[in-house]
């Protein structure tokens, strides 16, 4: 989705959102069933390159986006590395038991999460929500009722954020923005959530009424302001993904980084 961060429109932005979704989603499944760390490492390199070259965002922003995912990489892989089971012990100290097997398994898990992050980010950063839903309506025959409900909800988010700040200030002034103990904290969550939710529910209901008042019914066939079609860029994306996947396997086979071919 759009984050209000300046960027260039590249061919990745021009791809059809539904096509992009259909190309990315199977990758999530495929990645889970790959057990050769060499393949995953190659894919990570390939898709990071694609992302950096063609997302249209500046390098410093791209690197910033990856900071939280790097953290997840380290945390998921380290817990597996430190406490996993294995036969070839490298290091043992109390609970910590590092084995060769657990090390590679951990690294493998880390790359898996990193790949998930890349696909998620790549989709989010190169797709406008409005076009995604227009495309889903036109290519995937999503009912307009649902598409526009989602779009209206997206509009509510920044308003909610603003309101959260106001509620925070208001509670601070009344010295009600802090609480001790479990019950106090629970009370605090309610204090923030109730005004925010009640405002949003009311607003959502009003928007729904306003939409129907603007003749939003199922009686007439709709036309579309944005015509979203399939194009050559979708073919490019398909080719690029297939190439990276195939090359990843090939290179992993010919020039493996580690000797292990299956981490299970």
């Amino acid at each position: 989705m759009r984050w209000g961060i300046e960027h260039k429109e590249t061919w990745l932005h021009q791809t059809n959102p539904t096509a992009k979704l259909l190309l990315f989603l199977p990758m999530f499944v495929v990645i889970v069933f790959v057990h050769n760390p060499n393949v995953l490492i190659n894919w990570t390199i390939g898709f990071i390159a694609l992302f950096m070259l063609f997302s249209g965002y500046r390098m410093k922003h791209v690197l910033l986006f990856f900071v939280p995912f790097l953290f997840i990489f380290i945390s998921t892989s380290s817990s597996m590395i430190l406490f996993g089971k294995g036969e070839t012990t490298w290091f043992r100290w109390g609970l910590i038991h590092i084995t060769e097997e657990s090390f590679y398994r951990g690294v493998h898990l880390g790359f898996r999460t990193l790949l998930f992050a890349i696909f998620g980010l790549m989709f989010a950063l190169t797709t406008k929500p409005v076009l995604l839903f227009y495309s889903l309506m036109q290519q995937a025959k999503l009912k307009p009722k649902y598409a526009y409900s989602f779009l209206a909800a997206i509009r509510l988010l920044p308003i909610m954020l603003e309101e959260f700040q106001t509620v925070h200030q208001a509670l601070k002034v009344r010295r009600a923005a802090k609480a001790n103990g479990f019950r106090g904290k629970l009370e605090l969550v309610k204090r923030y959530a109730i005004p925010l939710l009640s405002q949003s529910i009311r607003r959502a209901q009003r928007i729904a009424v306003a939409m129907e008042a603007k003749a939003f019914t199922n009686e007439r066939p709709r036309t579309f302001y944005y015509e979203v079609t399939l194009g050559k860029y979708d073919v490019y994306l398909l080719v690029v993904i297939c190439t990276i996947v195939a090359l990843g396997y090939y290179v992993a086979d010919m020039f493996p980084y580690v000797a292990i071919k299956d981490v299970r």
Partner: peptide, 16 residues
């Protein structure tokens, strides 16, 4: 309004 941009909101009515 249900759309983020002025033209999109106007278009929403015309689409209807």
């Amino acid at each position: 309004f249900c759309m983020p941009y002025v033209d999109e909101e106007m278009a929403f009515v015309l689409e209807n």
